[in-house]
Design a protein around this nucleic acid. Structure first.
Lengths: 170, 170
DNA sequence: TATTGTTATACTCTATAACTATA
DNA sequence: TATAGTTATAGAGTATAACAATA
């Protein structure tokens, strides 16, 4: 494989039968650029500031999980959905509880477990944040047709599914 | 905006004229899922291990920048391309130099600057890593038609461009 | 004795500040 | 005095280990 653009066309065609490598050579750099744009563009931090939350990235993520679930969740369930370990969630919940954005309620079904429940202010905070994020993307994609948005959503969904399945399998 | 899936269909249609919010409600969670799959799936770490590099994520990223440029680069230029600050690159270069994967050469045009140049082993290391990454995606997307790959690449490119432009503008 | 969550600690990646050498 | 790079330090985000309480 030659990643030098100047040598690309001639060397890669022979690499695979179907020319799949050639498509990936375009796709992967764009994927990398997307990650950079979102992470280093401080998209989340901007939305947090615009929403006036006073929270940081991991804390608002917990709040968003609760908002999307639209129901109290256990610490372990939040960790599972965020793909992080339990202690990380505990610390975010400590901070959110201190700010009165969530409450800890003992799970009636299991005295060991705690249900994390957003307060009305917590829900409002998550909504302000989500509104800022959605608003940003909505303005960035103002020129996009409904078909293109749907096509990207559909392809992205399949891409993620296939990636996740392959990560689990390999 | 209501992020509860059960209430979604009825409440959001009235939110915007063109129904753009509705598409984003599908698109953004998939984008978030993609980020999670790639980052928490340890895709990079797997490729690093498979390539037997002994390097970590930031170090191999420097090596990949040099490989893609196919020419020696200044520390500042690498930092710019990686969207990080200078000292971060210096540290990775220190490590890469210690492992004899890059060399520091004084820039003949400016005695202050250093050109970072991969050694043959450095180039080979980057190639093994890239081959592992491309191989992974190639297998994950084995069922994809060339058209779908191209469509995703094209939409992703436009998406990133619009996002980047909007981040710079707002 | 297995599981839920917490506390304490450590690790990875990246930024900021202070400094050196050349321009 | 401005710029390229380095060194030293600090911060954000997340993991691991040891522990407590309940099952």
């Amino acid at each position: 494989m030659d990643v030098n653009p100047r040598a690309r066309a001639s060397s890669d065609a022979a690499e695979t039968g179907g020319g799949g490598e050639l498509d990936l050579m375009v796709l992967l750099p764009r994927l990398a650029r997307l990650g950079t744009a979102i992470n280093r563009g401080n998209l989340v931090e901007r939305a947090l500031e615009r929403a006036g939350t006073g929270l940081d990235r991991p804390a608002v993520n917990v709040l968003v999980q609760l908002r999307m679930a639209d129901a109290p969740l256990r610490v372990g369930e939040i960790a599972h959905r965020m793909q992080v370990v339990g202690p990380h969630v505990t610390r975010q919940v400590n901070e959110l509880e201190r700010r009165l954005l969530v409450r800890r309620v003992v799970d009636p079904d299991d005295q060991r477990a705690r249900l994390i429940e957003p307060t009305p202010e917590g829900t409002a905070c998550a909504d302000r944040y989500l509104k800022a994020v959605f608003g940003f993307f909505d303005r960035a994609l103002a020129d996009w047709s409904a078909e293109d948005r749907r096509a990207l959503g559909s392809l992205l969904g399949r891409f993620t599914d296939d990636l996740t399945a392959h990560l689990a399998a390999e």
